[in-house]
Write a protein that binds this DNA or RNA. Structure first.
Lengths: 180, 180
DNA sequence: TATACAATGTATTGCGCAATATATTGTATA
DNA sequence: TATACAATATATTGCGCAATACATTGTATA
């Protein structure tokens, strides 16, 4: 016998509003859903590229040849993250790594033929996927633009600035208003 | 001398649109930003609750006493995830764990006094934070509602269904149209 | 009663990311 | 030249989550 403890059965995490970071959890759910469904799409199309490494490979293709630090700068990511992703991409046969003859510190990455072929496959579906998103946005609104606006607003003025009544702890940050 | 390899310097990841999962990365950025800024807020207010465990503690408070599996069901999360979070919450002194006298399989969690005090502190700022989000949404649009709509649309009809020209691989999924 | 099954908790592994520290190499400066 | 500094790559650790496997205990059924 299961003792009937009062417990709201919210199978749907998006319905649960009694949580301070409801927006965080919701946007995370969106991110995960998109990654999963993109993975599905890639699998159906025979694309083995890790979804989270798409932008890395795109940047590498555009550069032709690049070091981890360069890729990191191009992507706005930390170079540690790039370096962490690369072994898997090499294992997948998508790119190779050579020492830079001109600078012993650097190791240059380059797409393999398979890597280029995979990127070409992705290109074949790129327009189609753009259309999918366009139709989706027409259906439910332009989430992309709105998230972008929200992100910029939060970056400009973080939650803590917006919450007047919350104590400022030690640092007594007397932030000047953004230059008008 | 740095060799000038052609490389788009996009310090801002949100500007990078030449990526198939741009929306995924963007919503992930929003999620991370919100978590970070909520952490800031909590720190300023002296709240030690892990941001990602807010909903767990809220559910536990409402239940009074609950097992990991119950909490998982209430949160719509896997019970492994709940069980993984609990040791940290116990270490923070926010809750305790007792074996259920009535069922040797179960272990019941309960908020400690400190846990209740911390939740009360969170309550004190809850309205304020709600207002912050209300004002934010008035400024940039109701992201929450729009993400919710998008999420439901994607759940109803995943990307792969929406991308007509992409091969269906083996399973030849002949999904019937959603009952009209 | 004996057996199968369900529910619960636990451990392990792996992925993705952040943060930190360290070694190596190149560059600039004293 | 010698020294300090910057850039690069690497390793390590930790967090959060997913997935799997497993042991234990309770429940239902033969």
């Amino acid at each position: 016998m299961e003792q009937p403890i009062a417990m709201p059965a919210s199978t749907d995490p998006s319905t649960n509003l009694d949580d301070i970071s409801f927006l965080g959890r919701l946007s995370e759910a969106l991110s995960q859903t998109i990654e999963d469904q993109t993975r599905e799409l890639f699998d159906a199309a025979g694309i083995v590229i890790p979804v989270r490494s798409c932008s890395l490979l795109t940047a590498l293709r555009q550069a032709g040849e690049a070091s981890a630090a360069e890729l990191a700068r191009a992507l706005g990511q930390s170079h540690q993250l790039v370096i962490q992703k690369c072994p898997a991409l090499i294992r997948l046969g998508l790119m190779t790594q050579h020492p830079d003859p001109a600078d012993a510190r650097r190791k240059l990455f380059r797409l393999t033929e398979k890597g280029q072929a995979q990127m070409a496959m992705q290109d074949r579906y790129s327009d189609e996927i753009s259309d999918v998103y366009r139709r989706l946005f027409a259906e439910t609104g332009d989430v992309h633009a709105m998230i972008l606006r929200t992100l910029r607003a939060l970056k400009e003025r973080p939650l803590r600035d917006r919450a007047a009544k919350i104590p400022v702890s030690r640092e007594t940050e007397q932030r000047p208003p953004p230059s008008p």
